[in-house]
Amino acid sequence: MSVINTEIKPFKASAFKQGKFIEVSEADLKGKWSVFFFYPADFTFVCPTELGDVADHYEEFQKLGVEIYSVSTDTHFTHKAWHDSSETIGKIQYTMIGDPTGTITRNFDCMRETMGLADRGTFIVDPEGIIQAVEITAEGIGRDASDLLRKVKAAQYVASHPGEVCPAKWKEGEATLAPSLDLVGKI
């Protein structure tokens, strides 16, 4: 079952952000764009490359009014230990949510039940808390933050321009499409 166009389910979790432990819930997301970036585990291999890539683009996401939430089934304590011990993870300024019960991971339907670990899942959530985009990759396939940034821009564009859609490879400032009977079979 797809979670596209569904509202995120209520949750409350402990997280690590900029040297502090904080509490995060679905109420914190209302009114702004969010990205939930699930990954299998701290202190691993592909995960730090992905999280570091998102950290390198965090300022760009912030300029778009987007908050990033990384989530794994590790605890917020583990996130702090990883942040303190890894140069790559140490540059992260966004919120790192601990989900040791797997509640949030299951809410987004990206739990590998036999392992108790999250899949590599990326979810773009609009200001109303509705999931607008989903990407799930297999364990060994890392994601690209610049493509995520492009998808966020497309989602924001479509949300603010009813009646227009963004074609494949669309980049900010490029032409969009206005679906109509006249376009059928002409693209």
Results as ranks from 00 to 15, higher is better:
T88N: 10
I131D: 01
V134H: 02
D119H: 13
T122N: 11
E113F: 09
A178E: 14
C166S: 13
S180R: 04
T75W: 08
P167H: 11
I131G: 05
A178G: 07
D119R: 12
P167N: 10
I141Y: 10
G142Y: 03
E135M: 12
I130Q: 06
F123I: 02
D84H: 09
C166Y: 02
I97N: 08
Q132P: 06
D144F: 03
T137F: 02
D147S: 12
G173Y: 02
Q93W: 08
A154F: 05
Y157N: 11
V158C: 02
I141A: 10
M96K: 00
P127V: 04
M115G: 12
V158E: 03
I141K: 14
D144T: 01
I97S: 10
L117A: 07
N107R: 10
T137D: 08
S160L: 08
L117H: 07
A133I: 08
K153V: 04
R112E: 15
T101D: 14
Y94G: 04
S85K: 08
L149I: 01
Y94L: 04
A154I: 07
E135A: 12
T137H: 05
R143W: 00
M111T: 09
A159N: 11
D182L: 15
I131E: 03
S72I: 02
D74I: 08
T137E: 10
T73Y: 11
S85I: 05
S85Y: 03
G121N: 02
K169L: 13
W82P: 03
A159I: 07
G173Q: 06
K171E: 10
L149K: 06
T95P: 13
R150P: 03
W170P: 02
V125I: 14
T73A: 13
I92P: 02
T122S: 13
R106P: 04
A118F: 00
E172T: 04
I124N: 09
S86Y: 03
D182W: 13
T78C: 15
D144Y: 03
I130P: 08
G98D: 04
F77A: 12
N107D: 15
P167Y: 09
A168Q: 11
R143H: 00
I97W: 11
A118Q: 01
D126R: 11
P127M: 04
E128Q: 15
P100Q: 01
T95W: 06
R120K: 00
K153M: 05
R106F: 05
G140R: 08
K80D: 09
R106K: 15
S72M: 01
T75F: 07
V134C: 02
D144M: 04
